[in-house]
Design a binder for these strands. Structure first.
Lengths: 205, 205
DNA sequence: GTCTATAAATAGATAGAC
DNA sequence: GTCTATCTATTTATAGAC
């Protein structure tokens, strides 16, 4: 489990590394970069994590599980409808964009793909984390039984939209205020609209 | 412009490097890796491209423009409807997945973001290439005037779905035949369905 | 646990023979 | 244009003093 930066060396390394890995990738981030940014000694990284690969694995694993659990918890507590569930996921990705970006990059690298397999979570087939909760929210929304095919279609439409938009927002939009319809308010409106349209279609079939 | 592998050293380097860069990233791919895989001498890479950065820039630029132009050409020639345009884009991403993946990774790295700006193409605000053609296809499909807001929404829904699905297909699905509804036939059905649903909504508003 | 020093490997880039 | 050899810098990782 990733702890918040609490002054301790190990925590500072993790907090710093998850940002650097996301931005520069695994190979693009050296242990020295991490140590320097975290203001800890170079040797402490290998002392606490044995090697660079294990540090990376721990960050990926923790970020993935944290997201899944967080979304599941929120869903169980507040029972938001589908729209609000997706908005919550979007906002989560905004705040934890590092983890989403790191996981997306890993997914696209055969080299590090093993960091994403056999994580023992419920979301292993949906790429970035959170898929299972959305499926539950969809089921709840439509009311009647949703066929497996319909469910997969809806999930992919909604999920790909939220993920893609979150990445685009973090990587392009938020630094270019001139691009039309790319404020977070606009994006949330777009997510809600797609929700309604998809659900409407599910109810018809 | 990227030439097909024609036996010449420069061509072999480009053909090999675009695959390696996509898979292992810029920092994860050494000049030696490229030279070895392309079966050329190490020094020839720097001889033909001056340095690693310029080789990368050339591959990115060429892949980006190639995709935009290819889609535009196809569209002008056959005048496919929106569904077929997106299917064409999806199939293009299947065959040229390297370029899509490389561009996506760049987008997620502040470090290399400059390789994507001021490319002088018409798609600069739509992330991965091809956006403008889809906009035209949407306009054509709906018939009546589409508001700017509606257009942005539709574009993002359709585009994010095709891009995200293409990446997922290449990175996860095609090696895991057990995951349900992830054959290319399934995916194309999903794309067509989303098309119909989005267009239907545009016609209503 | 934290530091310095260093080993061992690998990186990008270039010089110069052919 | 292609090759070998090499320079310089940087990398991960570890050994050993404190």
């Amino acid at each position: 489990m990733i702890e918040k930066d609490s002054g301790d060396t190990k925590g500072k390394i993790i907090t710093t590394a998850r940002v650097l890995f996301a931005d520069y990738g695994f190979e693009g981030t050296s242990i020295r970069d991490i140590a320097k940014a975290a203001e800890v000694n170079v040797a402490s990284v290998n002392y606490h994590f044995s090697n660079k690969d294990k540090l990376f694995a721990e960050i990926v694993r923790a970020g993935y599980i944290e997201c899944s659990q967080n979304l599941r918890l929120k869903y169980e507590q507040d029972r938001p409808n589908l729209e609000d569930t997706l908005i919550y996921l979007f906002r989560y990705f905004m705040n934890k964009s590092h983890d989403l970006i790191t996981i997306s990059k890993i997914m696209m690298s055969t080299q590090h793909a093993h960091h994403l397999t056999s994580q023992g979570t419920e979301d292993e087939f949906f790429g970035p984390p959170g898929g299972k909760v959305i499926a539950d929210a969809i089921m709840n929304e439509v009311g009647k039984k949703v066929s497996e095919e319909d469910m997969h279609w809806a999930l992919k439409c909604l999920f790909s939209h939220v993920v893609h938009t979150s990445i685009m927002y973090n990587c392009c939009f938020k630094n270019n205020p001139n691009i039309p319809f790319t404020t977070d308010t606009d994006i949330e409106k777009n997510i809600r609209r797609l929700c309604r349209v998809v659900i409407e279609d599910l109810k018809k079939s």
